[in-house]
Amino acid sequence: MTDLAIQTQGLAKSYGPLGAVDGLNLHVPRGSIYGFLGRNGAGKTTTIRMFAGLARRTGGSIQVFGLDPQYDHIAILERTGFVIDKMLIPSMTGNDLVRFNRAFFPKWSDVLAKKYAEALEIPMKQKFSKLSSGNKTKLCLLLALAQGADLLVLDEPTAGLDPVVTDQLLRLIVDDFANDGRTAFLSSHHLSEVERVADWVGIIDHGKLLLEAQLDDIRIGYRRIRAIGRELPTQSPEILKLHRSEGMTEYVLRANADAFTARLRNEGATVLDVSPMNLSEIFLELVGKESHVPVEVLA
């Protein structure tokens, strides 16, 4: 028995010559809230569709609860709530869909469905086709949450939700999921929400995983150091990025900032500041273009 809810090895998906996902090694621990981050078109949705057995991989392997979605996707669907395409039967109301879905899931809870309809403020008597896009998303989330799953896989769950409902949703994910040791995997590019709720993050760009780590370890490790001096070191395993301008050098370090700062001082440099970085800054350093807004303007 593994303590990973989802694991992939060398996972790949290409559409003809176009590689959407390229050698992904993901490890999603049970009981975690895993934030799967990437820009538009980075390969997030393709990856999630492969988890659900909706897309066939072209290489590598996937295990969801130790099962392969290509062969055992029914068994996986029984234990996993997926919210991917946010499309349901248009002529059915929320209440119809609750009655319809109930039959498929042995652990379905009407009590939970009612609670979520109230918490997320969903008009349950309207036809799906008449709902606003935010309410469509909320109804999809309700159906996934009420099925009593051990794992939730949500693709951009907060897209189109207002801040109050987003906050309610995060609370539900923490309270009803993580608190029971169940696992939530959510893709997003809304970094501030993920930063709050997630304890693991994976950052994907151009189909490749750039970083997978515990968020608190990232917070401890990553530092921005600004220093002045001649012939400062440019090579060190912990240096992620190096920016130079007019006698000043800025380092972005993955780890060991204290030791590195001491080394700079020993080599005669003046260290101006060592500052922690939030997830959004780290994300920009990892996947951003070189020519983004200068740091002085952001500060």
Binding site: G31, V174, N179, R196
Partner: peptide, 17 residues
């Protein structure tokens, strides 16, 4: 732990730690 985690919207493992 559970209550504080829900209030702060953070993973209960974080509060437990």
């Amino acid at each position: 732990v559970r209550k504080l985690a829900a209030e702060l919207r953070v993973n209960p493992n974080t509060v437990a730690r």
